[in-house]
Design a protein around this nucleic acid. Structure first.
Lengths: 341, 341
DNA sequence: CTGAAAGCGCTAACAG
DNA sequence: CTGTTAGCGCTTTCAG
């Protein structure tokens, strides 16, 4: 049986025979109390099943104890794991998580973000936000952290350095002896330019040719679609990097059904190290970007920014380093087997 | 440049030369206005960049225009897609989504749900909630919908009928001619018993033996772990059903590294039809539970319950039907001789 | 069509 | 240690 109306602080005060101020202080652990009062308070609260009305509280404090998280695609395992990490530290700090899936949209983003901004103490936003929205966010008077966005002046970012991520993979492929490498990017992503830069840094220095392709979306379906275009040409690349594991996996699947053996006929690598990458055949060589840890880091960061104005503009500690994960999909096996072109 | 303090309804009223009541009615489209007032209001609001304070609003209305969604594991693609669907219809109806990842925990669930309950107009909760928490939720005075939970009296549930899902798969396997089938379940899940019932319904009738196993968790890692136990025994099953695609995929991978060919040596099937199931090798036969549509349905449902007391107890329309997705992993190829490797 | 006034439940000084 | 009081920003009767 639950009471008709939910109990308010006044009900508790009355039941305990104290003032509402006392109840408030008790709930918020702001001071100590005489044993008798404390006991009465405790039982009154239990009796009535009282709990604070967050709206009322936030009206006066101006804080919501909620954080907003906006990601490009909730169903992308990378983002799902970022959320997982973010959720964990939010809960540990008594924050609630408001989530919005941007669904890879480029327009109407501000409209989706605005309600979030109003209801939270801070925002975590993933890449590809139009410049005017970035400005709006900056003028919001709340901490905002960008995810996987190249550093810009005046905005705090968390995530791997895209240049480094790409270089890592390029270095491995060069070391394997590939001399013509394809990159299936996603031009509309904020990190795409940096990825290309990282690739070129290494590949140009090694005298390795880079062929650039673009996927329609950062998804497996798009990876499938692009495969024929990449592979059915005389100068096809010996190795292909997908801009994320999803694209790489789709690409790999379609490549196989086109009759290519992986990695013998064409090597494939991805980025992110989503859980699935271990389970495809061949297992996918990729770069671990520590999605879950990224989520934890970004949430930790924003919570500290909320408490401390001073920390709002500090650069994040360069704690997260990408890690190359060597598996089967990108080994140059033809060096120890048959040699095809 | 943003103003120092965010504008309130009073600022707008003053700037427009009207009362705050008028502003309020204007914002909430509660009536029509004289052209002059309307124009002044419009420009004042734009000028000041005013937007409603949701906390203040909800203080008086008692509504939050937010919905809580609690799932067992955010990183499970099934749940991620449920969230995607839920997010979409929430946004379309001007609701915000509060998310909490239960992380497959069995304890402390109420503590995680309580803040959500206080901040939302309704809750969507996925399975395996302890009975006392269910009671608490029921006494909450807010609509609550359970996800993937067997129907109980007095609670609204959305999701596939687990019995049907399991039967569908069992039927297919029987038709393929398998006579000894294994099921890798997850005993702690709310749906496990119904799955078993669905399996037995069909298998017993067909005189097919069912061997039951239990995974440590509904994850790929657990699927890998259990594989040896299932396969390295004289009476190993000819076909194995994972309680979800994640488990099935892990199982399949480990089975292969144990030297089993799939489906020649052992057939494998999963449940959910997560996106990845198409991309593993061999592609995974599974049952589509329409995760994203489930999310849309459950959100639609709860929003209608919020507006309409009467609909709170109605049974949901049996709209969502599971669909068998036949792929490569569970074909009985030995009947037509294994032609390919 | 417009406005005045009464709170929603709570916290934060300030007194005692 | 405990209580009084003044709002936080907004919606909602109820008058005009």
């Amino acid at each position: 049986m639950s009471s008709r109306k939910t109990a308010t602080i006044r009900d508790v005060a009355e039941a305990a025979g104290v003032s509402i101020a006392t109840v408030s202080k008790f709930i918020n652990r702001q001071q100590s109390f005489s044993a008798s009062v404390e006991e009465k308070l405790r039982s009154a609260i239990a009796e009535l099943g009282y709990s604070q009305n967050p709206a009322a509280r936030s009206m006066v404090t101006g804080k919501t104890t909620a954080i907003g998280l906006a990601v490009m695609d909730i169903a992308n395992p990378h983002y799902a794991n970022v959320m997982k990490g973010a959720n964990r530290v939010a809960l540990a700090n008594d924050y609630n998580l408001l989530v919005v899936d941007l669904e890879e949209k480029g327009t109407g983003v501000r409209e989706m973000l605005e309600p979030l901004a109003l209801r939270t103490d801070g925002l975590i936003v993933s890449s590809r936000i139009p410049a005017d929205v970035v400005d709006w966010l900056a003028g919001l008077n709340k901490p905002v952290v960008f995810l996987g966005q190249p550093e810009r002046q005046g905005v705090v970012c968390v995530g791997m350095d895209s240049v480094e991520v790409a270089s890592l993979l390029a270095g491995y492929l060069v070391q394997q002896g590939f001399t013509r490498i394809g990159y299936v990017g996603y031009g509309r992503a904020a990190w795409n330019a940096e990825r290309l830069r990282g690739l070129h840094d290494v590949l140009d220095a090694a005298g390795v040719e880079l062929m650039e392709f673009d996927a329609e979306a950062p998804t497996s379906e798009a990876g499938e679609q692009v495969a024929a275009r990449v592979l059915l040409r005389p100068d096809r690349p010996q190795a292909v990097i997908g801009c994320n594991d999803l694209v790489a996996i789709g690409f790999m699947t379609e490549a196989r059904s086109l009759g290519f053996k992986i990695p013998q006929d064409v090597a494939v690598a991805g980025i992110d190290n989503i859980p699935t990458s271990r389970y495809v055949s061949p297992s996918l060589t990729t770069v671990d970007v520590f999605s879950e840890a990224t989520g934890e880091t970004v949430m930790t960061r924003i919570i500290s920014m909320i408490g401390d104005e001073a920390s709002r503009k500090l650069s994040p500690p360069p704690s997260l380093k990408p890690l190359l994960v060597v598996r089967e999909s990108a080994k140059r096996q033809d060096r120890i087997a048959a040699t095809e072109v």
